[in-house]
Design a protein around this nucleic acid. Structure first.
Lengths: 253, 253
DNA sequence: TTTGACCCTCACGTAACGGGAGGCCGCACT
DNA sequence: AGTGCGGCCTCCCGTTACGTGAGGGTCAAA
């Protein structure tokens, strides 16, 4: 009766050394020893080990695990509930990371290189002040930006594909209008600007005319965006910016 | 221009000491130093750091990360794709764990105590018995099989991970050689076969050229192995088998 | 009774940093 | 021109969670 170190190690998928170590530091000492000094693990030892491995998997230091498990106020069910909670949080975190990776892929294929802040927000080290300061400066208001962040965080890969495909089509239409000689304040160009605005509103945030104008200005100001448009036709960035302004003016804003 | 250690540490959410460490071990050395010896990190240093932190987050040892990042065959987009893949797998795993916790909670409230096997199947991603029964039948209790069983029995979860990751890299290299048009008896392919053999010897058993040849034959014969290789490139299984034979022939066996 | 797997206890090694000590660097402030 | 003061440098020892033998008992099958 009882399990030997080797048996436990195979069952739990840990090395014998690990079990020895847990015994040494008093995290998990086998309930009994044979006359010859062999460790014998009981069923409740196994349950404890299960919890140990669980918390370890989630990155808890062993010392802390000992404290958690030795707390007399928590029973098995409480542990399970806590474990479930921790898992859920972890899953959410990883899903956010996955979304961030998707955005990075998108940026990469568009040839945009991320700002340092964007680079590391993947890791969720929430740094509100600086980031919001920059967003404020760049977007002229944090509400739209936050809304964008919230929405795009939920987007799947397919969503991104549809999003960028739509954007690309609008951009190409702009390019055709531009090379075709249509002025930026022509019906066609302004309609395209309006389409662009609707596109953003649908996917990202409530894009007002004012915000849209700011966005257009930023397209010409920020070379990372300009780099996206200029290859299609030199001067296209400025053209889009002008069309956006004309459209905003037409709407009476 | 460039970022100081302090700036980078704040940006990335790591300590200065960590950056020093990465410099020491050559994982991430700043692009420049000032005249007075201060570290100056460039934008591409930041990108590298981002990838380092990502793989670290997923539990890769730093040394392995260096190998991954220094592989000239992989560009940023490939890394991002791989990261996304790894994240997805990780999420699946955690969701399985969450489901297992739910089952445990149910069992607990019903007053049922789990069997040892049930206890740890939460962590167990590998079920060796089926595979081993199969191997037994195939290999009929040969020396190599026994050796393999002994060694793999000692392997921890992380060992398995490293083992499969290594194997995956070799396979990918094979796929690149194959799609790149290199013949199965080319230097490159034979070297990969030798790498594969060394890999097996390191992890499982003393893989002689003769055993290796048999293994290669089995890969094409057994659809479960073929299913592993064919998705990467149709015909890859046969290619690997041929490379193994060529390599064995080169070694004079 | 021998043999091979399994177990024991030291005891040193390793990875990935943490946390100082002791000493330059640089710039704002007087 | 001096003087803080924060930031940066290089050692260098400490820590966690084990890995990896060495050297030696234990036990069940042959």
């Amino acid at each position: 009766m009882g399990y030997s170190v080797g048996q436990v190690s195979r069952l739990a998928g840990v090395t014998v050394r690990t079990l020895h170590h847990y015994d040494e530091i008093g995290l998990l000492s086998p309930g009994q020893r044979t006359a010859s000094g062999y460790r014998r693990y009981t069923d409740s030892d196994l349950e404890r080990l299960q919890h140990v491995l669980f918390y370890r998997e989630l990155g808890f230091p062993l010392e802390e695990i000992a404290v958690i498990l030795d707390d007399p106020g928590t029973d098995t069910l409480t542990h399970l509930r806590r474990q479930h909670e921790l898992l859920s949080r972890r899953i959410d975190r990883l899903q956010e990371m996955a979304a961030a990776v998707e955005r990075a892929m998108e940026a990469n294929t568009m040839g945009i290189s991320l700002t340092p802040e964007e680079r590391f927000e993947i890791f969720g080290d929430f740094r509100p002040e600086e980031h919001e300061a920059e967003a404020e400066e760049r977007w002229g208001g944090t509400e739209a930006f936050e809304q964008s962040r919230r929405r795009t965080a939920k987007m799947t890969k397919d969503d991104w594909k549809r999003f960028t495909d739509e954007a690309a089509r609008t951009t190409e239409a702009f390019a055709r209008a531009f090379t075709g000689g249509l002025p930026a304040d022509s019906e066609v160009a302004m309609d395209l600007a309006e389409e662009h605005r609707a596109h953003l509103t649908r996917w990202c945030y409530d894009c007002t005319y004012e915000i849209h104008r700011g966005l257009g200005d930023m397209y010409v100001a920020d070379p990372r965006f300009a780099a996206n448009y200029e290859p299609l036709a030199p001067g296209l960035t400025q053209y889009i910016r002008d069309a956006i302004h004309a459209n905003a003016g037409r709407a009476g804003a």
